[in-house]
Design a protein around this nucleic acid. Structure first.
Lengths: 351, 351
DNA sequence: TTGTAAGCGTTATCAG
DNA sequence: CTGATAACGCTTACAA
């Protein structure tokens, strides 16, 4: 292998007034000495400024500035039994939708002084259980979950922590504590109605056999029946929902019934796979077969033809979750523990 | 708004042998009492098992099991001055490439008992500086950065922390401590060579005006000259590199020179935007104009025609970073502080 | 409004 | 190899 070429990377000079040569972290005592008060007064000035007289408060703030003091979160957490960490459980950090929710959450919580710490459950109960142990060891101030905790033992464990817990995504009836989500059932209904409006009769479903996939299938099946649609085939897999899986599922579908008019895929990635496969086999989309997805990923917009899909405001889920958690963290009460975020059917070229 | 439909969400019964009704976290003292040793022996048995006799070690491990003890990370960090946290600075958690690197990093570090904590710098020096303060307050065991720290003051600050620091992505010459990256310059060279091979003469560039965009432009320009290609137009923007920006840039490009044969876009998203715009204006890709990107996002593969692009093993960057950090964390020495990850040109339909 | 005293749970240090 | 002791930096409880 030839010698790689180095990149000339930008370097930016320090702005004025930088911290003097670091000689280890500054402790509260140092600030106290400089401000001529006791350490506890510094602590108070920083946490509840109104508890300290204006004169001292100003002296303290100046001293904090000068020394570059930053409270040691471990000492704080050890003494108070509670940290400024909000633990967020995410099944898959590569998911655009989950990442958006985390962004929304962090955008609300970070300005309030909380640190969002991500834990990856990787869709595994084993990982989830391990993770709960290690994250709760950090004495988080609150917990957010992109999804619903399924294992009863983990639900109990979280409940017993005594901190605000926010589940999300599916609109489940009995959250551990609070929940913000959209109704998978409603989304599936919208697709069934859309297919019916378009005059399709013979339809099919592609999705995962568990979790959200199942929720979407059940509702889709139910509403197809109500609307007089014939659900000819249901392809449920136990695997990940990716583009390749969508292709495979479409192959299976087309090798069976050849008169399917519309397919509902429980995720956009599956739908994209299905769409690519259909077109490669010479089928017109939506002429020969209409395809709808779920999730409104960027892919749905960029692909040709655009993918009709169910859009959820996933960043909004994170934002609302953050606001509710913050309210509780600041001592407030939440009257409505379950918040519903409506879905929307986005019509594009694929149906 | 009509009443939303609730989802019937899966619940899974607890497996056998669950922790008994939680009555607050277990402390090391409790374990010690049960195992009939002193707390410090428990601590040792957990951290350096070989320092404790086999008999006691077993008694202790059993007691840990029975009580469900999990060491309090705050007490540990407070006393030892070092936590099990690895701080990871990411400019954008929505980026597929960065997320992959984080996955790779966490996959290596988590099994070794470290917690990867993400901080979002959002491409802002301000945010980055604030974040460094709050993350270093956690006394991380190591630091990972998706990118290179540019501000000199922040570089100094990190260096002074005295923990392993890993920068990444660009192949810069003088890292704070360690670095794993690929050569942006090499990637741009590959594209120039590819265009030359294809017989193109009049080429253009679209990218960001700073950071990686600039690196790629400089190298591209240099190699175009060497290869006898004419770099007719360079469109550099100061904004985000998204699909809409790619469209706009392509509009600008086409409103100027109309005889451009090939365009190198410094990111896949820009390239996708450019590609969509070109096709909507009735141009054949690659017949009328060839387009190449950088990054090999999933989009590059799924779009029609497939996007020729420079692929980097970004998960590999995270994995290697994790391995090197781990080596250092376990007391080892790293002889080669800079690791080069080769790039690869993926030929698809767009060129 | 401010300060004193004590201790959160762990581990470094030193003694045995 | 094991244990007693003290201390990490902060905040709760109480007192002034």
């Amino acid at each position: 292998m030839s010698e790689p070429t180095f990149d000339k990377v930008l370097r930016v000079a320090s702005p004025e007034s930088e911290s003097p040569a670091e000689r280890g972290p500054v402790r509260i005592e140092e600030v106290a000495k400089l401000a001529q008060v006791s350490p506890i007064t510094v602590s108070r000035a920083l946490r509840r400024p109104q508890m300290v007289s204006a004169v001292r408060r100003e002296r303290i703030m100046k001293a904090v500035e000068v020394t570059g003091y930053f409270s040691n979160p471990h000492a704080k957490a050890l003494k108070s039994g509670k940290s400024d960490i909000v633990a967020a459980f995410v099944s898959n950090i590569l998911s655009e939708q989950f990442s958006l929710a985390i962004e929304g959450l962090a955008d609300v919580l970070e300005p309030a002084g909380f640190q969002v710490v991500l834990g990856r459950t990787s869709y595994s109960y084993q990982r989830e259980t391990t993770l709960i142990r290690s994250l709760t060891a950090m004495r988080p101030a609150a917990v957010f979950i992109t999804g619903v905790m399924e294992l009863e033992s983990n639900r109990t464990f979280l409940r017993n922590m005594g901190v605000p817990i926010m589940e999300s995504w599916a609109l489940a009836r009995d959250p551990i504590d609070m929940l913000v989500g959209f109704s998978n059932a409603d989304g599936a209904r919208m697709v069934a109605e859309h297919f019916a409006q378009r005059g399709h009769r013979k339809v099919a479903f592609i999705g995962r056999s568990g979790g959200r996939g199942m929720l979407r299938l059940n509702s889709f099946a139910e509403h197809c029946e109500q609307l007089g649609l014939e659900l000819c085939q249901r392809i449920s897999r136990d695997t990940v929902s990716g583009v390749p899986e969508g292709r495979e599922a479409m192959q299976d579908l087309l090798s069976g019934h050849t008169d399917i008019e519309a397919v509902f895929c429980a995720s956009d990635l599956l739908a994209v796979g299905a769409l690519l496969e259909a077109r490669e086999r010479g089928l017109q989309v939506p002429g020969d077969i209409a395809i709808a997805g779920f999730g409104d990923s960027t892919l749905a917009e960029e692909i040709t033809p655009g993918l009709t899909t169910i859009a959820a405001d996933t960043r909004g889920v994170g934002t609302i979750a953050g606001q509710m958690l913050l309210e509780r963290l600041q001592g407030g009460k939440i009257e409505q523990a379950i918040r519903h975020v409506p879905l929307q059917l986005i019509e594009r070229g694929s149906t």
